[in-house]
Structures are given as C-alpha cells and as structure tokens.
C-alpha cells in the first residue's frame, strides 16, 4: 500500500537473511519498530532483486523517522533516527 507524509508505520519484523542468501537494505534495529513517514523519496528498483541480477520492479522509497526511545532500552532523549525504507517493508501499525 502507499503511504503519505505523516503516516505512522510499522516495519515488518521479517528476517529474509535467515531463509537464504539475501540483500536487505532494512537495518536490523528498525525491524518490528514503529516510525513515521516524513518524506516520499521516489521509486527505485528493488535492491533485493537487483543484487542478484533478477528483474527488479520499482519500489516506493520513504524517509521514516524512529524515536530513539522506541529503538534502545535506555532512551533518555528526544533524538531520532531517519532511515530510507522501501514500501514492501512497511505496514499500517
């Protein structure tokens, strides 16, 4: 599904690298975590296929912020991490 700026999203808690060779651009530390879309970055060929020379469909890329306090056990601040994530890794929370 498409997301818009301001949408709350969850990152899929999926670990394709455990099922076999994979090229994943979704960092471990955001999987299963909640964030918010701050920008639509356009569509790019899916790197998970591109890396294996397979036909790579364009996927929407989003800039998603995550509050540090949702990522780490000792969250004192209001700091955040901004990550580029492809649409197929995001779902409505």
């Amino acid at each position: 599904m498409r997301f818009s700026v301001g949408d709350e999203v969850s990152v899929r808690n999926d670990w394709p690298e455990k099922r076999g060779p994979a090229h994943i651009r979704t960092p471990h530390y955001v999987r299963g975590r909640k964030g918010r879309v701050v920008k639509e970055l356009g569509a790019f060929p899916n790197p998970e296929d591109l890396a294996f020379a397979r036909p790579a469909d364009p996927r929407q890329l989003y800039h998603v912020t995550f509050p540090m306090r949702g990522l780490w056990p000792d969250p004192a601040s209001n700091d955040e991490v901004l990550v580029e994530l492809y649409e197929h890794w995001l779902e409505a929370p």
Partner: peptide, 10 residues
Amino acid sequence: KLRVVDSTAD
C-alpha cells in the same frame, strides 16, 4: 534534537 540519518538505500 539530534537526527541520525542512516543512508540505507538509493
């Protein structure tokens, strides 16, 4: 606010 930008993609 510190915003860490992780260059993960394109």
